[in-house]
Design a protein around this nucleic acid. Structure first.
Lengths: 214, 214
DNA sequence: CTAGAATACGAACGATCGTGCTAACTTGTC
DNA sequence: GACAAGTTAGCACGATCGTTCGTATTCTAG
């Protein structure tokens, strides 16, 4: 199954970096930034604290990015790569499209349970924080959410084509409802600390899909 | 229909305030704080900007609260009152419990559409921002979310008692799914700016309730 | 091996943050 | 009308914010 990728924003041309240690530092910074941002917030995460956290000087870290906004945009793409590795990729090669949808949703719940990001789903946190602040970061977040829904949508359409799901279902509507349960599970899990919300998400998704069978 | 109220946190005993102008100022501050917090964030909203916004001095405003955390807690309760007025109250006096559930969900969507809070649902925004920061604010947010789900839950149970909904449905599970669609609609509405997400929430809720009929 | 570029650091900037202190004023009570 | 208490403003504090600059160090292409 070939899902669309969360490719990096097409605009930024890499300023042909040269040294290997710089590349490594940059990756270390972005990985820490993605994970810390779910706890402190993508805006709330300060460059000084991020630098302290990875044992680097503030100015040394800052030199890798032209501005905090550049750092945030790069962090978004890094988080998207992590999400792809932890959720999208493991849910490929399902026996049937419908099984693939369940695998994808289970992979999402597992990604929450395993605390891939310590503060829950990166995109749920970042979108809620920045959805009121116009600019390239918000736009990119909207783009990533559309890609994610597109992945769910195409899998629903495939399950309809294979005869597993009712063709009368609107794929985008079903994708909306599935993601609603996943995100609600995330919210409860992070806020209340127990896994009941994750269980509800798993159960709700299964019964919703059962109701959509032909 | 008597829903539980979002009463103020029981712990804080009002320090018997005395003058009418002070009470008025406090109300003005908290109303502005609740609405601004959905745009700038409850933590991101600074006392200086809030003071500027309502034409008051920073220290004059600050004197009403012992700390920023106190201001945030008071803002939570003010937002809960606004929510009660705009969502809970209008959805009372429904002909049947099931109609009441639909009225409640529609009132929620309307509260988003009318931009009662300019940055979308106050509690969705605040919960996503503060769910990783332990303390009284996070705890109170969790409490308010449980109250809200309790309201939905009790209405589901009432609809089961009246014979409108299948008694086999678990009320808490159905409340979870309904709120999931409402919050997903909120997220799409604020992030993308169009009302398609709200429409999807309305539609999904109606068909989910239809599926739960006896 | 060397030259030049990439990388990292320390220090400092102006701005803004939450939080106190003090003094002027308004209000409500006897 | 006086006095106590509540309200507001001005000012300043230490801390932290994003950002810039000059400089020392380290890698790598030739």
């Amino acid at each position: 199954m070939s899902d669309a990728d969360f490719g990096p924003a097409s605009s930024v041309a890499a300023p042909r970096r040269r040294r290997a240690d710089g590349e490594r530092s940059r990756a270390t910074i972005l990985d820490a930034a993605a994970r810390l941002a779910t706890v402190e917030g993508l805006d709330g995460l300060s460059i000084g604290r991020l630098a302290d956290h990875i044992g680097m000087s503030k100015s040394g870290l800052y030199a890798h990015f032209g501005s905090k906004e550049d750092l945030q945009l790069a962090t978004l793409d890094t988080a998207a790569e992590i999400f792809t590795d932890e959720v999208i990729r493991p849910a490929r090669q399902a026996e049937t499209p419908l099984v693939g949808i369940i695998a994808l949703c289970d992979a999402f719940v597992s990604y929450l349970e395993r605390k891939v990001f310590p503060g829950g789903c990166f995109f749920a946190a970042a979108a809620a924080e920045l959805d009121t602040q116009p600019g390239p970061v918000k736009e990119r977040l909207g783009e990533l959410l559309r890609i994610w829904h597109g992945i769910l949508e195409r899998r629903v359409a495939a399950a309809q084509a294979s005869g597993e799901l009712d063709p009368a279902e609107e794929p985008a509507q079903l994708a909306f409802e599935l993601d609603g349960m996943l995100k609600m599970g995330n919210a409860l899990f992070v806020l209340q600390g127990d896994t009941l919300g994750l269980e509800r998400a798993r159960r709700g998704i299964r019964s919703r899909l059962a109701a959509a069978r032909v």
